[in-house]
Amino acid sequence: MINQLFLAAAEAAEDEEPNPLVPHLAEIILGAVVVLILWFLISKFVVPNFERAYAERTQAIEGGIAAAETKQAEADAKLAELEQQLSEARHEAARIREEAREQGASIVAEMRQQAQAESSRIVEAGKAQIEAERQQAVTSLRAEVGTLATTLAGRIVGESLDDEARQSRVVDRFLADLETGAPGVN
């Protein structure tokens, strides 16, 4: 390689070969002009397009993420609302059940009270009736017994005991004697 380069250098000296390390002014100017024009064209027509695509893509992705976040938030809110409603419904059901139980208990108690009242009322009424009937029986018996006894006594003693006052006085005395157990007139 070095050998060859020496050879080339020697030949260059002979053939007046151009030195590749010396830039040609025409090439510098042409190169600069071409690069400047290309730079202008690219910054004017190419870079803005790519940047626009980048920006739109970023926006699209960010928009998508934002939309997803909104949807997620909505879903969360909906779920919370439904859970709220469910727990409210549970509370309501428990409350109604509790009320029903209380009502049932109070109804039973009331009924029991009523039945007791009714039964005691019936018993009272029965007692009163019996008492009244007994009183009636005693009264009617007393009258009848008096009449019978008077009639009997009249027949036995032969004495007319028509006098009303006397009659009843005698009967009463007799009955009182009967009640005290003391021996009567017999």
């Binding site: 042409l30 071409v34 690069v35 024009i37 290309l38 064209l41 690219i42 027509f45 190419v46 870079v47 397009n49 790519f50 626009r52 695509a53 739109e56 893509r57 699209a60």
Partner: peptide, 20 residues
């Protein structure tokens, strides 16, 4: 000159749509 033309035309057409 060809290189500059080629580079510009190629990248112009590649970037023209700027699709997402």
């Amino acid at each position: 000159v060809i290189a500059a033309l080629l580079a510009f035309v190629a990248f112009y057409f590649m970037s023209r749509k700027a699709a997402v």
